[in-house]
C-alpha cells in the first residue's frame, strides 16, 4: 500500500500558453489518483486557469462544430481533478494569488477555488513532503 504523501505545487503560466501547464495537471492527476493530498497555488497568469467564464469554441480549421471540437477549458480540468480527488480519498486544495486575480479581473472562479497570498504557498510547502515550483520561463 502506498504511504499517503502531501505535495505542494506552484503554477505560473497563463492558460493556453505553455505545455508546462498540461504537465502540471498530469502531475496533480497522478498524485491524487494514488490518494496523495495536493495543494496548488496559482501565481500570476495561472490564476486564470480557474476563471469561470472560459468558454469552449468550435474550430473551422478542424472542420468541427462546438460539440465535436469538445475544446478543453482548464476550469473544467480543475473541477475534474477535484472530483477525482474525492473518488480517490485525496485532498485537493486550489488557491489563487489574490492580487494576481485582481490585476487580471478574473475573480469569478469555479467552485472550490480559494484566494490567498504567497504565504499560503509557503505554509503548504512547509507542511508538505515536497514542493515543486513550475514557473513561467522567458
Amino acid at each position: 500500500m502506498t504511504t499517503k504523501k502531501t505535495l505542494a505545487f506552484l503554477l505560473m503560466d497563463a492558460p493556453y500558453e505553455s505545455a508546462r501547464t498540461t504537465t502540471a495537471f498530469r502531475l496533480v492527476d497522478a498524485a491524487i489518483r494514488r490518494g496523495h493530498d495536493v495543494s496548488v497555488f496559482c501565481y500570476e497568469g495561472a490564476v486564470a486557469l480557474s476563471f469561470a467564464k472560459q468558454a469552449p469554441h468550435p474550430n473551422a480549421v478542424h472542420g468541427r462544430d462546438l460539440a465535436q471540437e469538445d475544446h478543453p477549458n482548464p476550469k473544467d480540468w480543475i473541477a475534474a481533478l477535484a472530483a477525482q480527488a474525492d473518488r480517490s480519498g485525496a485532498k485537493l486544495a486550489w488557491i489563487n494569488c489574490g492580487l494576481c486575480v485582481d490585476e487580471r479581473g478574473v475573480g469569478e472562479v469555479v467552485s472550490g477555488v480559494g484566494r490567498g497570498s504567497p504565504v499560503d504557498f509557503w505554509k503548504s510547502a512547509e507542511a508538505a513532503d515536497n514542493s515543486l515550483v513550475i514557473p513561467t520561463k522567458g
Binding site: 501565481y43 500570476e44 504565504v119 509557503w122 505554509k123 514557473p135 513561467t136 520561463k137 522567458g138
Partner: peptide
C-alpha cells in the same frame, strides 16, 4: 533566472516580490 520578465507591468520582479512576501511571513 528569468530576469526582467514583466517587471515594467508588475513594477517589480515577481519572484523577488514573492520572496519579500514570504520572508515577512517568517520563511
Amino acid at each position: 533566472e528569468s530576469g526582467y520578465r514583466a517587471t515594467i507591468e508588475e513594477q517589480d520582479d515577481t519572484v523577488v516580490w514573492f520572496t519579500h512576501a514570504i520572508k515577512g511571513g517568517g520563511a
